[in-house]
Nucleic acid binder design. Sequence first.
DNA 1: CTGAAAGCGCTTACAG
DNA 2: CTGAAAGCGCTTACAG
Lengths: 366, 366
Amino acid sequence: MLSSCIDHSPRRLAAAGSNTLGSGKTTSFHIALMAGVSQATVSRALRDSPLVSEATREKVKQIARDLNYHVDRSAAGLRSGQTRTLAVLLFEDDTIGDASVNPYFLSMLGHITRSAARRDYDVLVAFQQLSENWHQHYEISNRADGIILLGYGDFVSFDDKLERLRRDDAHFVVWGASAPGLDGRSVGCENRLGGEIATRHLLSLGRRRIAFFGEMDERCPEFRDRYDGYTDALNAEGIDIDPALQFDARGKESLGVQAVEQLLASGTQFDAIFAASDLIAIGAIAALHEAGLSVPGDVSVVGYDDIHAASCITPALTTIRQDPRAAAGALVDLLLTRIAGGKGDSRQLPPQLIVRKSCGSDKIKS
Amino acid sequence: MLSSCIDHSPRRLAAAGSNTLGSGKTTSFHIALMAGVSQATVSRALRDSPLVSEATREKVKQIARDLNYHVDRSAAGLRSGQTRTLAVLLFEDDTIGDASVNPYFLSMLGHITRSAARRDYDVLVAFQQLSENWHQHYEISNRADGIILLGYGDFVSFDDKLERLRRDDAHFVVWGASAPGLDGRSVGCENRLGGEIATRHLLSLGRRRIAFFGEMDERCPEFRDRYDGYTDALNAEGIDIDPALQFDARGKESLGVQAVEQLLASGTQFDAIFAASDLIAIGAIAALHEAGLSVPGDVSVVGYDDIHAASCITPALTTIRQDPRAAAGALVDLLLTRIAGGKGDSRQLPPQLIVRKSCGSDKIKS
DNA sequence: CTGAAAGCGCTTACAG
DNA sequence: CTGAAAGCGCTTACAG
């Protein structure tokens, strides 16, 4: 029955025939055979091409459903030159001991995936050590139409690598601080404003000796921006910046613990801590508790990111929220714009203060 | 220069020639041309085939590096029938309000990705609502050599869907309780043993009125197993099971909060809580604090999973650890075994008690 | 609106 | 150890 047919291409016919009779996967030729149309029409119908009549489209789709047929993406990808896949590259900071990814990026990954799915794109994930070569980039750039870089940190010292990506005409966007070579490629948060808001909140509560926990390394330009916001707020109140109140800490609890220990050991007076990330803040609170200090009784603490754990700890952490859903959406939008050949604009999302328990809600006399 | 050459296939030559002269991507034909070998040899050399001499392989690889050439995975996939990609499907439990993924699965995703990368496989992620149709499965099964199902819950009521996957000869493995149709496809934790260990720990601390928070729904077979372990431990001590101490709670903080409120409202005496997940435990602790109760002073709490937040909260949560790295490794191993045509065995990983602060370390008189 | 044909860039028998 | 050839399953000009 299948050998009496519409498709007159002998090779195709033989293939379809043997597949149908024996084993082998279902292809668009089988659908064509059953629908009594050409394989090209099947392809068009399945892709909702306006070049196909309503009736034909429906018939083809019904048969495809019945046979549980799905387009072979490798074949489609090869032919069209598009994978309809986006790659997300997460950088692990291996300079701080065990490799680990900030939970904030993990939740962003989820939102990116949903956002991409809505646009009919799949998401490939990869983790990469900050210190590794970027070979994987090129590998992955071969499997996706574009790349989203997360947790990459400093885009200045890695500029040569980005330059190479650009030279290869790779489509990519990054989450983080905007930098010279990143026009139309970055989505971030207004970190300076976020730092200012956090610090102003502490000031409004009467805190005056506010420590800042966050590395002033060029690898963490966002921390630097938050620090600048911190000094903005302090300056606005006419408070001198005390360098003894700044402690380096990368985004990890143990570094927050460490910073508190150093601060305590230094004997410097303080009544609040602005941590450049929630992870640091969480470590700091644990260390404060350990030292017998009350939060927010003795010390107010503000974090940054609003990761899941922030709302779970006691006291619940007041923090600056960077909306991961909005961030993910903006990243995907920008990347798809670039893939489509457009230019797109970099964006800085607004930070939002989330007041919880870790600062105290009443005015406190300094 | 490139037009005087080795490759005598006119079509190929023309293509390679025009690519080299004009724009277009670098292909294995370009490498072949430059290396003075056939395209087939380039393909073999790049795949480290033993059929290629050392010298030829090195020459080819060097040229490929120089030209920043990478194999087109769509073409390779189409030809070989292998994508060298694994899909991870994360189920979101949308029956409990806002869709969200347990952080435990997110961290497992990271480990799966690393594990797969070591075996030279890429990972595709997708999130799916528990209530949605599984269309996406089929879509995704077309883009990967195999699927890992995470957070899926109950494999009994979804048996027809699994049956369909099986019928389509899809390679898949699941994280969770083993079930009849899942021989050689599941990796889980010895949940009953885990429940017993958690409960025995509480008993060893002198606790006698131990509440169990965890849904007894068929969608959560793992919770059921943990409950059985709980009753095992109680029975071994000759303690009667009091149904008034069991409260339904799905894996989410707010449900833990709710369960505590119900427990308190019921007036039932209790001195400990065994929560079937860390998320529930974290919510319970917050609610206990809210009610003015001390943890572990008044109530001891044990969780399950050992998610990141468990070690961050105050008091740090004692919990049953399911090693996500080992779990991910086992899942990937099993799936690759199946993809290779082998059978493989389901595995139950050992649970491990992590003692922290939430239970108190001293004996407590009941 | 539909079909015949070409060809995307590989891998893999087959032959030597 | 190497090469010539076939063909994986699609999409997309091209022609009608």
